[in-house]
């Protein structure tokens, strides 16, 4: 049975897995952005927090993903549903690039510009919203881009705990020793990652010119 054959026969299931995959990545990125960017800003305001926050995100990054999914199984609310666990884990993994790029982007704004803005009497909030965030936007989006691409790859592993997504085919293919089935999961995941990478890269360029 060829890859095309398999895909044609299972196109509805494939579509559903792609949508599940996008759902897992989309929701986790939503939470990661919601959490990561404010944390990144926080770190620029209070450098004391640099070590705990960036260090913490760094440590999370070093936990093997399969192990993290495993750790979450006995967790009270998360353990009940596989997609909750997957989303939680993916969110944690996406935090580091987001926090780090937000921090680097804001700190990378030309010192003279920040000094001028302060000297003109901008409040901290005005400085952040009118000057620092817009000028850091390119770097922040680059962080979102890296985090999303990593998440798309990582989300395939979520299938190991039954959270669905394109990992289903990859694990099924492994069990069946069928390259076609593996590829039917891996190729769409790779294409998805490329698409996101291209789109966010384009956005990054547009917004920073």
């Amino acid at each position: 049975m060829s890859l095309w054959h398999f895909v044609a026969q299972n196109r509805l299931e494939l579509l559903q897995l792609i949508l599940e995959h996008i759902w897992l990545v989309g929701v986790s990125m939503f939470f990661a952005v919601l959490l990561g960017i404010p944390l990144g800003i926080l770190v620029t305001r209070w450098p004391v927090l640099n070590r705990p926050i960036l260090g913490g995100a760094n440590i999370i990054q070093t936990i093997p993903s399969l192990a993290l999914f495993g750790f979450l199984l006995p967790a009270p609310w998360f353990g009940e549903r596989a997609d909750r666990m997957a989303i939680f884990a993916l969110t944690l993994y996406a935090l580091l690039p987001l926090i780090r790029n937000t921090y680097a982007g804001i700190n990378g704004v030309d010192h003279a510009i920040v000094e001028a803005a302060r000297g003109m009497g901008l409040t901290d909030r005005q400085l952040l919203i009118q000057v620092q965030l817009p000028l850091a936007l390119g770097v922040i989006i680059a962080g979102v881009r890296v985090a999303t691409v990593i998440s798309i790859g990582l989300a395939t592993i979520a299938a190991a705990i039954g959270a669905g997504g394109l990992g289903e085919y990859i694990f099924r293919g492994l069990a069946m020793v069928s390259n076609q089935v593996i590829l039917a999961g891996a190729i769409p995941a790779a294409l998805l990652a490329l698409l996101v990478d291209f789109t966010l890269g384009w956005l990054e360029k547009r917004l920073t010119r």
């Binding site: 003279a112 510009i113 000094e115 803005a117 000297g119 009497g121 901008l122 000028l135």
Partner: peptide
């Protein structure tokens, strides 16, 4: 109030610090 103070003092620096965006 530091904001009030600064808003009545114009500030020009060598690197200008114009907002590029």
């Amino acid at each position: 109030n530091v904001i009030r103070l600064r808003r009545m003092i114009g500030y020009v620096i060598q690197d200008i610090g114009l907002f590029p965006h």
